[in-house]
């Protein structure tokens, strides 16, 4: 297992330029024909968030005592959207590059990672609108104002853990999808289920005690919860919680890489 991680690392260093080119290709192809181009990477999440915000806080009247609901919602949404989009892209990475894989030898590891980085750049850009919302959030009297604080320095670490987790899941999905194309549809449904089972627009406290324990095991919730601690409460997550963040991300990466490595020589017969 350690060997397979080493292997990926070695390949990523060796094929850094290829990785960069693959990510750039995705960007160029995505925005080639659009007038606003790369601006969509910021505009799209911003507009989507506005729609969600209006729906949940004005129509459904969701709100939380002493918490800025808009920021609460956004911190959950950006993480979940990243997970959803990156895993979907990574799942198609091997199938989508089948002509290339059939013709030239390239380490196949690189394709799902390239997709996760590509979506990851969009994720980082979508943090800009979130930052704007934080700056102009709520009022201090009601306790709904969010302050930019020193613990923001922990955010890159948490998001890195999330990235590892997503790459791990991406490896598993890419592998399964090669052998079973139906996975693309199955995953679409699973994502929707997961969307409702992750406390994004509701608080975990509305659930019964017993369910809460299970929901807290969801790694996505762990990442979201850690970022909310920092952004909403201006308190750092405990070292233990950060360790859990790391272990869940790293563990998933190891499992994903192991499964991918085990099956990758068979891909060619199914592409």
């Amino acid at each position: 297992m350690i060997q397979s991680i080493k292997n990926i690392y070695y390949n990523i260093v060796k094929y850094k330029f290829l990785l960069q080119q693959l990510v750039m290709r995705d960007f160029k192809v995505k925005y080639k024909r659009s007038v606003l181009g790369i601006l969509w990477s910021v505009l799209y999440p911003l507009l989507m968030m506005m729609v969600m915000a209006i729906v949940f806080s004005n129509m459904f009247k969701f709100s939380m005592e002493g918490v800025n609901y808009l920021v609460y919602l956004m911190t959950g949404l950006v993480v979940f959207n990243y997970f959803s989009e990156a895993t979907n892209n990574a799942m198609g990475a091997i199938i989508g590059n089948s002509t290339l894989i059939n013709k030239v030898y390239i380490p196949k590891y690189i394709f799902p990672v390239a997709k996760c980085i590509f979506v990851g750049i969009n994720f980082v850009l979508s943090l800009l609108p979130l930052l704007l919302i934080i700056i102009f959030s709520g009022n201090a009297a009601e306790g709904t104002k969010c302050y930019i604080n020193i613990y923001y320095l922990l955010l890159p670490f948490i998001y890195l853990c999330m990235f590892m987790f997503v790459v791990g899941v991406g490896y598993i999905l890419a592998t399964v999808a090669v052998f079973l194309r139906d996975m693309i549809y199955i995953w679409g449904i699973m994502i929707t289920i997961l969307n409702y089972f992750t406390p994004i627009f509701y608080s975990i406290t509305i659930l019964p005690e017993s369910l809460q324990t299970i929901f807290k095991l969801n790694p996505l919730y762990i990442y979201i919860n850690a970022t909310r601690e920092i952004i909403l409460n201006s308190t750092p997550p405990s070292p233990l919680y950060l360790l859990i963040c790391f272990l869940s991300g790293f563990g998933m990466l190891v499992i994903g890489a192991f499964i991918f490595k085990k099956k990758q020589n068979k891909f060619i017969y199914y592409l």
Binding site: F17, L18, Q20, L22, R25, L100, V104
Partner: peptide, 13 residues
Amino acid sequence: ENIYLNGAILGYS
């Protein structure tokens, strides 16, 4: 753009 992409695929720097 394809010269760079294809070059990278062939392992050039």
